[in-house]
Each structure stands twice: as C-alpha cells, then as structure tokens.
Design a protein around this nucleic acid. Structure first.
Length: 569
RNA sequence: CGGAGCGUGGCGCAGCUUGGUAGCGCACUUGACUGGGGGUCAAGAGGUCGCCGGUUCAAAUCCGGCCGCUCCGACCA
C-alpha cells in the first residue's frame, strides 16, 4: 500500500473556514480541504474525501450483499416518457433536471430509479420462480432542489445507494424489508453515526408506509417527535399524538362580540379561556379546491396530513382574497353554515364539545360550538401537527421534539409502480400477479457529513477508524538522517501491514503539523522526532484521546497494532 | 418561488455613509534566523473591486438591471 505524502496531497488545509459554512461538519470538510464547492449544492471531493466515500460505499455494499441484494447499475439519463408512465412526471416535475438530445427528445437526469427498475423488472422477470429479488446500485442522482443547503446535507448532485426488492406476496416482502432494515442499522453503526428509525411520510416516492433513519442533531432539517418512555418515534410530518380531554361544555349556542380579535391567542385572552377551548379555521387550496380545515385552537394544521386525508396531490394555504372569494371571513370563520363537503375536521374538534368558533361575521364569535349538533364535516381525520409536550398516542407520556438529518429512507411501495407500469409475473397457479415492491435509499455524501458531525471536536475531525481517509498520520519532527531513516522504516512497516499511511513530509513547524493532523483527524498519529529518537522512542497518539504515549521505535508495529485494536470499528 | 443578507487577491475581512492613489490578517514565493502545538525578520508575487449599463472631469464607492452565493420558509437521501 503506497504511503501518501502531505507535500503531494491534492488540496490544502485552511486556517479559517469560508464564511458560508454554517455547521461544524461543513466547516471542517472545507477547512480540511476535503471538499470544494463548484455551484450551489454541487461539490468536488478531493482525494481524502473520496477515500472516505469509497469506504462508506464499501460498508454499504457489504451490508447490502449480506442482506441478499445484488449490485447492478442503471442509467442516469432516462427518457421522460418513463416518468409519464408512472405518473410522476408532474409530481416530481420541478425537481427533475430536463434536457433534450439532438433529436429534440426530452430526457431527464434521474433523481431516483423506481421507474427504471420497474421497467427492468417487466423486461426481465416473468415467473414467480424468479422471485424474490433484491438489487441495488450506487449511482449519482440529480435533483434540482429548490434550496440546496447545509453543505453536503442537501445538494443537487449526489451518490445514492438505492435498493429495490420484488416479492410475490406481502409475507415474502416483509422478509426482504426486515433484512434491509437490519442492514441499515449495521451500516450506520459501522460508520459511527447513531440513528433512530422513525415513521415517516413516503412523499414523492409513494407507497403505503415508510421509515426514515434519522441522525439526531441540532443542525438537522427535520423535526422528529420522540417518546422517551415507549420509544415511539416519528417524523413530525406524520407523528400521531393524543389530543387529551375535551374542555368545553355543550351549552347553548350563543354569540359574543369580539371586535378586532382575529387570532386565537387574542381570542383566548379576550374571553379568558384556554386556547384548547377554541376552534381554529384554516383555509387551503387542495388539488384546486378551496378547503376549510378545522383544528382545536392550540393546534396547527399539518398540510401533509391534510393532503393524505384527502388523498390529494397538492395543497397550499389560500391567499386572503381567495378566502373572501370562497365566502369565508378570515379571523372570524366558522364551520357552521359552510357546505360540509368542503370542510375537513381534526379529531380534536370532533370529540370536544362547546368550543368558541367564529361566527362568519366580522367582530363576532360563537360560544358552545359543538360538532354534530351545530356543524359537520365531510372528512374527519388526524390533520393536526404533533409538537413538543403533546401526549404520546401509545403511552400517554409527554412527547419531545428534536431536530435530525434523514440519513436513509426505506419504503413499502406495494404496487405503486408495478400497477401503472404493468409489471407483472405469472404465479404458480397460472395467474398473472403484481409484485410487491420496496425501495431503500441512502445518501452517501450526506452520510459522510453526518459522520463528521457526529465525530469531531474543537480541533477537527475525529474519524471513526472504519471510514477514515487515512489510518495513520505520521508526523516527522526535525531534519536529519536519523529522523528520515526512522520515518522510512516505520512507514514501510505500517503500510506493509496494510495500514493506509499519510506522512507529513513538509518542512513545517511542529505546531502546524500537529494542528493539521488534528484537523484531518486520522485515528492514530505517530510522531517521530529527533528528540525521542535519542532514547529510541517514538510517540503514539490516538485522535480520540487527549494524551500521547511513548513507544519504542523497534516495536513500532506492535505498538501501533495495539493502539489501533483499541479502537472500535 | 416568498422573505433577509452578502459578492473587494486562495481564505477571512476593512474601505462604500461623505466619489479622486485598493488596504489589513492568514496563506503563497525568495533569503536568513529558528525548530515538539499555527515562530521572527527582510524582500516579493498576486486584485477586470461579480457582470452589464447609467450619472460624473472622475465610480469599489452613487443609480438601474442582471448573475452568483448564503440564511429563514414551502420540498427530500
């Protein structure tokens, strides 16, 4: 294994991080010279970073294969028709990088591969005898994200490991799914990143159910709802919660004047009642249809839940003039008297009687508004957002909310793609059936960013041994033949033993070399200086430990092996 | 796409309010001293001040347009 020399390494370390780096991992990746930005959400990966990415890929590959999946490769350039066939050309539309070939045929740069793998399946698989199947690839994905952010966390070009499974029935599918799930835990553990699996919304990928693997960190962009007691964990976008007891009474419906009171907070203050005793109206355009959503005053409408409840593809809040056009009075809107067909109510307002709601007249509210008696809705569903302090639906403890980064997402696709694309197989009974599909993604660069975020200190990166660009960072100190000779000896001993060695052969001061070693974060630093050599000594320092320890030059290999073995991974 | 901010040597920044000579720290080159936690001295190299247009005798600075990047929101590995 050739030794890498710092003087020859492509890339340089920076003392100060570029100003647009926010998070620790982004700053360290830039300062250590591992990545360089080319455009918003587009990065180059310099040699050390590429080493790490390849190690991560190798871990992923090993775990995928252990789970029974076969590596393959699908094209990144795809005809747009494929996406029309699945019906995702529109829903995925804005994110698709479109391009035209010389014959003016519209192609896309693939953001994911459900379509192409389903196409592949129908061309390759005919019989139940061919099932189950599990395939994966590691390949560049392209997504024209509305907003790249957070360094490597959200980019427009990235490597994804995406796996796909095909099964004859649900039972068989579950086996594939469970194997993948376990593989994911293994991957993150081996990369040194703690994760929690949470229930998630499957979003643009589709399907019935999905789980995300989340690395909990303040720099995360997802809100995760967690129950410490029973272990319930879900993305806020779909987290369930218990709405508690109803507070209102079911007295007679009466009007109350509330001039200038247009917010729930002001209303509760004005009437001296808790916000839970009010009903909140919110207006959305759902698949082009103005929709009146009602939740209890202390809650917020969750647009994703709203869409799911209505089986809709698109939802956005109504503009004030659109609200008026629909005949509703913002600030004083009431579900009473509104066509029930356009009303959707959250569970919280259906169980609770006697709420204060708008009167559909400027400056007026109603007391004791009760569902079923005074109004009704076409749809009653869970459409409210869970947040910190709400009660757990499973065990009644208080839910907590934390930020997190989505490092992986696994989906139970069912027949979401096989149906529209008419992928089928012939079963043992001679009947044509539709395969049950699953898909499973991991963003490789994002995982690297998480590794750094989870493994750093104020001096730099503290790479886990499993994915470090270099195992051992040799720091020669002082000139002279004695040092050069000892360095050469140790270098070859270590690299012959299979370690990946980086030697700082630059004519720099000790401080510069030590600081760069800390920044680059190899698990073990071996210092070879003229001072120590007088006693026949070299010095070993684990990056994860504060203090170095001496070792005899003659026993360098043994000492290094012991030090490396003391590390996890 | 809505909101906010920033574009001045490789990196971090000042200069802009009040137009006139482009500056500082780090990094870089050469030499000397130095040599175990970002050293000192000396001498250097390096900038169409994001782009286009306007105002002006004169624009980094004022005005307009555009582009790029970052952050906050709607979307996701």
């Amino acid at each position: 294994m050739p030794v890498t020399r710092m003087s020859r390494l492509f890339g340089r370390t920076l003392r100060e991080a570029p100003a647009d780096a926010d998070s620790a991992n982004h700053q360290l990746l830039l300062r250590s010279g591992l990545i360089v930005q080319l455009a918003a959400g587009v990065y180059s990966f310099l040699p050390p970073a590429w080493r790490t990415l390849r190690k991560i890929e190798q871990i992923v590959r090993e775990e995928m294969e252990a789970a029974g999946s076969q590596e393959m490769r699908m094209p990144a350039i795809q005809p747009r028709e494929l996406w029309e066939e699945s019906g995702r050309a529109d829903s995925y539309g804005p994110v698709l990088f479109n391009l035209k070939d010389r014959r003016e045929r519209t192609m896309v740069l693939a953001p994911t591969h459900e379509e192409s793998v389903t196409d592949l399946f129908r061309k390759v698989v005919q019989s139940y005898r061919d099932l189950p199947q599990s395939v994966f690839q590691m390949q560049t994905k392209f997504r024209d994200e509305p907003r790249p952010r957070g360094g490597l966390v959200r980019v427009r070009e990235f490597i994804m490991k995406d796996a796909y499974t095909f099964d004859a029935d649900d039972e068989a599918f579950q086996l594939n799914y469970d194997a993948m799930r376990q593989a994911y835990y293994n991957i993150y553990r081996r990369c040194g990143v703690p994760v929690v699996a949470v229930q998630a919304d499957s979003g643009a990928i589709g399907g019935k159910q999905s789980e995300e693997f989340i690395f909990l960190t303040d720099i995360g962009e997802d809100n995760i709802i967690l129950c410490q007691d029973c272990g319930y964990a879900a993305n806020q976008e779909r987290a369930e919660f218990d709405r508690g007891e109803s507070t209102g009474s079911d007295g007679e419906l009466t009007e109350v004047a509330t001039p200038g009171i247009t917010t729930i907070e002001a209303l509760a203050d004005f009437l001296g009642i808790p916000q839970q005793a009010t009903a909140k109206a919110a207006f959305f355009l759902v698949d082009g249809e103005p929709t009146f959503a009602v939740v209890r005053g202390d809650l917020e409408v969750n647009e994703l839940k709203l869409m799911n409840a209505l089986d809709a593809r698109d939802a956005r809040p109504l503009q004030p003039e659109e609200v008026a056009e629909a005949g509703w009075v913002a600030g004083y809107a009431s579900p009473i008297g509104v066509d029930p067909a356009r009303v959707i109510a959250d569970l919280s307002v259906v169980d609770a009687g006697g709420l204060v709601a708008g009167a559909n007249r400027e400056g007026m509210h109603l007391h004791n508004v009760t569902y079923g008696r005074d109004w009704s809705a076409a749809t009653v569903a869970d459409i409210a957002t869970a947040s910190e302090g709400d009660s757990c639906a499973q065990c009644d403890s208080n839910l907590q909310m934390q930020r997190g980064i989505e490092l992986g997402h696994i989906f139970k696709l069912g027949t979401r793609y096989a149906d529209p694309m008419e992928a089928t197989f012939l079963d043992a009974d001679g009947e044509r059936k539709t395969p049950i599909m699953g898909c499973y993604g991991i963003g490789i660069e994002r995982l690297m960013a998480a590794v750094v975020q989870a493994n750093h200190d104020e001096l730099g990166i503290v790479w886990p041994r499993s994915v470090a660009p270099f195992d051992i960072h040799i720091v020669p100190l002082g000139g002279g033949d004695e040092v050069a000779e000892a360095v050469g000896q140790v270098e070859s001993e270590l690299s012959d033993a299979g370690w990946q060695v980086l030697t700082d052969d630059r004519d720099e001061r000790a401080g510069v070399k030590f600081n760069d070693a800390d920044l680059l974060g190899a698990p073990l630093r071996v210092t070879i200086g003229s001072r120590g050599l007088k006693q026949g000594q070299i010095e070993l320092k684990l990056r994860s430990e504060p203090e170095p320890s001496p070792a005899p030059l003659s026993g360098a290999l043994t000492a290094v092996r012991a030090a490396m073995d003391s590390l996890a991974g």
